[in-house]
Computed example of a mutant assay.
Amino acid sequence: MTRLRYISKNYKHLNNAGNKAKTDIEIILSEDGALNAGLERTVGLGAVRGYARTLGSVIASCFRLKKGDVLLLQYPFKKYYDFVCRIARAKGLKTVTLIHDLGSFRRKKLTVEQEIKRLNRNDAIIVHTPNMEKWLVENGVRVPIVILEIFDYLSEGVNTAPQSCAGDVPRVLFAGNLTFENNKFLYDLSEMSGNFKMVLYGNGLDKSRIGQHAVWKGFCPSDRLICEAEGDYGLVWYGVSIVSGEGPLGEYVRYIAPHKLSLYIRCGMPVIVWKESGMAPFVAENNIGLVVGSLEELDSAISEVTDNQYCEMKQNVEKVSAKLASGYYTRKAVAEALKLI
């Protein structure tokens, strides 16, 4: 009988999107009977102890993995990925890699050729969006590919923040890094006059530069934000420009399923995404928000939404949110990948 395995590790903390997504996937796999081939997951052991713990987990997996197992790897797995793939192949395992981030694309930690060579060691890979699949195939990936669609988001929280009433000014929420250097568009958007106001959650805000149309709520952990977020729409936008997704991170949005989008949906909010983003088709097909070509269109796009249309989007958000809370998309993608190998 085929056993599905994964390798857990030490996580510095669970306050960022990457670690939250990875630990949620471990939980979903475990609930479905997958076994951790490494050591038990730990959080926050510090640099030296954390390194030793993760290394110990990888070494333990070398003894626990058996011929015929299927190993699901979450990518990137830093310096251990190539080693684990070679061990798995030598022991007669099949491997499926679920991609979180591409090192060659945004961080430039690898060349494209190096990354494609790594990924081709698998029997199947799970990617965010059709755009990511297309980019990988065009650059040489030859193994079967499954599309995740969106990252699940486990939390028992339910938004209990006061809802807007008819006639209230719509609130557009943005949660994340608020520094001018990383998200200059926020500062430009907060200066724009329009029939909406910005609600900001996060660290790094330059109060001397932020405009009068923004309200800062400080930093709020994601599980608490799901319960307390004040907003009518969640904005998924990156980069320096309000016109388009400019800069390395803005360009990367063409291919990825941002974890931030899942968070907003779990907050119960329709989302706003760039029309060129990898998630624009998902948002449009599920009718869970607005797709805009530029933030200059934001005021008119929001103003054109009728009360009935907004209620319909909210209802659709609730349906998708329930799927995210149950691990639906991870389970579906993993099941499809297993059929392909």
Rank of each mutant, 00 (worst) to 15 (best):
Y328D: 09
V283K: 00
E113R: 13
N183E: 04
Y329C: 14
L71C: 06
Y328C: 09
R224A: 09
L136K: 08
P130D: 10
V253P: 03
N182Q: 11
R49Q: 08
D206H: 05
L4M: 14
A257T: 05
L225W: 09
G140C: 02
V146T: 03
A322P: 13
L148T: 04
G204N: 13
D123V: 10
K260E: 06
G250T: 00
R3E: 13
T42K: 02
G245F: 00
D69Q: 07
T42D: 01
V43M: 06
E312D: 15
Y233V: 04
C227M: 12
K217S: 10
D299T: 13
L148V: 07
N287F: 12
I272R: 00
K207Y: 04
K117A: 14
R121V: 11
A335R: 15
L93Y: 01
F282T: 15
E251N: 15
M269Q: 05
Y252K: 11
L205D: 15
N195G: 13
S241I: 08
E276L: 10
I256E: 06
H13K: 09
G50Y: 02
G245Q: 00
K217M: 15
K275N: 15
C311S: 15
V48R: 14
L35A: 09
R142D: 06
C85L: 14
T179P: 02
C311E: 15
G289M: 05
V84F: 01
N16S: 12
K275M: 11
V146N: 01
F196Y: 07
V292G: 06
S155C: 08
D101S: 03
I116E: 13
L14E: 01
G278D: 00
C85W: 03
E40I: 00
S193K: 11
N286T: 15
C62A: 10
N36H: 07
L186Y: 02
V199G: 02
N203E: 11
V199L: 03
Y328T: 09
C165Y: 07
L102M: 01
C220H: 14
N36K: 04
N159I: 14
S277E: 03
G289V: 07
N183H: 04
L93I: 11
R254G: 07
T179E: 10
D32A: 09
G278C: 02
P248T: 09
N120K: 10
V141A: 04
S277K: 09
S294T: 12
K108G: 13
L65M: 06
A337W: 02
D82I: 12
K319L: 10
S321A: 14
